[in-house]
Design a protein around this nucleic acid. Structure first.
Lengths: 211, 211
DNA sequence: TATTAGCAATAACATCGTTATATAAAAACC
DNA sequence: GGTTTTTATATAACGATGTTATTGCTAATA
């Protein structure tokens, strides 16, 4: 092993590699969106990119590394979707809008959602670090929850718990709908709304006991 | 093609085949429980059974056929778990007990649960018929829901909807816990209880508006 | 008894993730 | 500038996967 000095060339090379990685991930993302998680094979990706499979291994280590990037990208897309929700109007309406955005993201990007929460790629199980990174996007929901009650404010831990309950409700409905365990397409939406409403009415109404 | 008469031999042969199928499925079930869905390969199953892979194809058609039987068996096990819940005491306590049994089943049989609701075997997607057969087990929950309100009874459709909401809540928490998106083991239990309680208090209390 | 139908074992095919080998290219060094 | 060393990529191979074609054997039927 050499000392591998930080020459300008090495830096440029690193940047070039980063660009390569992004390009590869763009192609892999297209493959994922168009043909689903089962189509994600190293050979398919390499053929799509126009390189050898060996390149993928030097860039990402193994298939785990490739899918892990897609996993993180999925959570990043979700975070962006939630972040683009305008929080005008009442705080509770903002929570509603976040929930709708979550459901919309899951429906529009079901393959990404599968990688994030189902386990469609046998070779991949998300590492602890990636899971924690992905969950960072939920701070938006936690903050939105916390903003709902100003008269009887919620503790940090409690708002996390409420956000988790909302998340579980969202995921439950969305996941069962994607697995086609809910017959129609429009039906789970109304069910989801009713389920969320029970949570909101019980836990997010301000000045309930306190005045 | 011959007319294939229903001789006693043929009948015995069919029964023998059924016994064989059950034995194969028992072995496959053990493999699933011990090593997870990724270990479910035709060669592994055949080696475990002590037969050739070709036998599996004559018995089940293809891997889809094998996993489909495990899928149905999973729902059957869940149904049995729910059916073994004693419904003594208040109707609402029975609903609570069903929910606990559901959660317990999912935790104890996570590999089965994955096959039923995640998509861990790329070669298998549940057919419509199997999905409908599996969902039959939820009649227990629907009936339990319907039994909760006698003063202000619920319509059949409404009790189905409420059961679906409970189911989605259960699945949301259980699924996120299995995917390790909920940090601790005991935490999601209390969260699940709170989520369920909001639903029960809102939708399952009798004589709420009517007296 | 002779024939025929069906089942199962073996081997093969295509594909998968991964790796060893070899070749080309570029950086490092003198 | 020439030489060496390191790096990167392509090719081919290995083991394992689902599936199928081929072959041989067993048993019911005529």
């Amino acid at each position: 092993m050499k000392a591998e000095r930080q020459t300008t060339y090495r830096i440029a090379q690193k940047q070039h590699q980063q660009a390569l990685r992004q390009g590869v991930l763009d192609d892999a993302s297209n493959l994922l969106m168009k043909e689903g998680p089962a189509a994600l094979s190293m050979r398919r990706i390499a053929k799509l990119v126009g390189c050898s499979t060996m390149t993928l291994y030097t860039l990402f280590g193994n298939k785990q590394g490739v899918v892990d990037q897609l996993y993180l990208r999925g959570f990043e897309l979700l975070r962006q979707a939630l972040e683009s929700v305008p929080h005008t109007g009442a705080p509770l309406d903002y929570v509603w809008a976040l929930c709708y955005a979550y459901r919309q993201f899951a429906m529009d990007n079901s393959s990404y959602y599968a990688i994030m929460f189902a386990n469609p790629v046998p070779e991949y199980t998300p590492p602890e670090a990636s899971r924690q990174t992905g969950e960072k996007g939920f701070i938006l929901l936690v903050q939105a929850v916390q903003g709902c009650r100003v008269v009887s404010p919620i503790t940090q831990a409690e708002s996390w718990d409420i956000a988790r309950m909302i998340w579980a409700t969202l995921h439950g409905h969305v996941s069962l709908a994607l697995a086609k365990h809910f017959d129609e397409v429009t039906l789970p939406a109304s069910l989801l709304e009713r389920s969320l409403k029970t949570i909101f009415d019980t836990l997010l109404v301000d000045e309930e006991s306190a005045v």
